[in-house]
Design a protein around this nucleic acid. Structure first.
Lengths: 227, 227
DNA sequence: CTTTAGGTTTAGACGTGACTAAATCAGGGC
DNA sequence: GCCCTGATTTAGTCACGTCTAAACCTAAAG
């Protein structure tokens, strides 16, 4: 099955929107995710349906078929392996890595994928803390824990994952010492949803205030669950 | 200037055909190089001419403008840096590296290029012995020396460059110990243009016979000129 | 039950990069 | 100097992925 880069992008987007608990993924959601117009999405969905990569009910959104999901997971595996490789071996910061991986993910061979995975020692998470699908392309289990925006003041939490969205936000967080693995002390939760947190263990760290839109993208867990 | 991948491929092809001493590059040569039909080439040449990347005289071929040459050199720099990186850091053999680099060369950022070059220590040649254009994108000087097919029996020569064409030929040469840097003793030149050579210094090496089509792609120099 | 607002699909168009078939040009042979 | 062969360009088509404008469906409000 020869798929275009664009088709792969659509399948990846649908996969990620499905995980965002939109159970059936709507045309408009895909359009927004990929920054195209809804009619463009409709016509691509017709092609993906012809190839049996999605199930579609007109006017009621789509879901991935198992084959579609496998393609999406392959693309995501490429993306996250590349992110990990770039940070480990080419001195990128985890906050800079997303765009480069997005451009390369469609253009690497199976062989390249294998060699990168081997060079990294078959990693299980990428630098943002997101799980890397295995070579078997089985769906990784849903992340556990909660988001920072669901946490309460005085909690101590450890950052598990920072969703790789806006590079500016990412580098802001990176600059302020907030990254996967760091322990955070929640100092204050303002009524309008502003979270003030303090990275623990870094002498030079200062308290950082984060609006809930940002806090929602930070997934956290209990402190020292295992080490 | 936003160029498509395909445009970059045409410019690279024209550059390489120009170096192959076709002074003006003909439509049919480009068509063969890129495996498309001549009308397809003509229509692309019109676009490249509109953008002032080539000089075109209808029915008499094209040459690159300085801007077109710069684009070609940028693509070639990407290609050769990637080839070098893949062999140095991802355990590829020099004979396997071409296709992977061809797919990636259009999709890496300036930043990636810089980091790869730094990781390699600003290399000057790729694993096939071809010069890597510098970051300034000045044209590297033409290779010196001669090809194996221009050499005579009883010569001892050192392999400088093996032009990266057919991967099967490359891995054959690689398997028989013929690669850049190796010294070759020319045992025999048969009248129909068959070259029999012996890699020097490798105990397990055996004599290898090469038709002149292959010998023409092996560039050689005098033995131990500097070390 | 009807209306309506908003999301979705249809219809029609465009640019890119490819093709085949046909017309045209250039240069060598006579 | 004319003609012919082979290369090149023109003309017309197609698939892909995008768009805008218009038609259409769904679901919620009244």
């Amino acid at each position: 099955m020869m798929l275009s880069d664009v088709m792969e992008d659509y399948l990846k987007a649908i996969y990620q929107l499905e995980r965002g608990h939109d159970d059936r993924v709507k045309t408009s959601a895909i359009a927004e995710e990929l920054d195209v117009t809804p009619p463009t999405v409709t016509s691509m969905l017709e092609k993906l349906e012809d190839r049996e990569l999605i199930d579609r009910k007109k006017y009621h959104g789509v879901t991935l078929t198992p084959e579609g999901e496998t393609v999406a997971l392959e693309v995501i595996r490429h993306h996250r392996l590349l992110e990990a490789y770039l940070t480990e071996h080419l001195d990128y910061d985890w906050s800079e890595v997303h765009d480069e991986a997005d451009r390369l993910e469609h253009h690497i061979s199976e062989d390249f994928e294998d060699r990168v995975a081997a060079a990294l020692g078959e990693p299980e998470v990428d630098p943002h803390g997101a799980p890397i699908p295995g070579a078997d392309l089985e769906p990784p289990q849903q992340p556990t824990g909660r988001t920072l925006s669901e946490s309460a003041a005085t909690d101590r939490v450890v950052v598990r994952e920072v969703a790789d969205d806006d590079p500016e936000v990412l580098s802001y967080l990176s600059d302020h010492g907030i990254e996967p693995g760091v322990t955070l002390e929640i100092r204050e939760v303002a009524p309008f949803g502003m979270f003030t947190v303090m990275p623990v263990g870094d002498e030079r760290a200062e308290a950082v205030s984060l609006p809930s839109e940002v806090a929602r993208h930070i997934r956290v867990g209990e402190e020292v669950p295992a080490e």
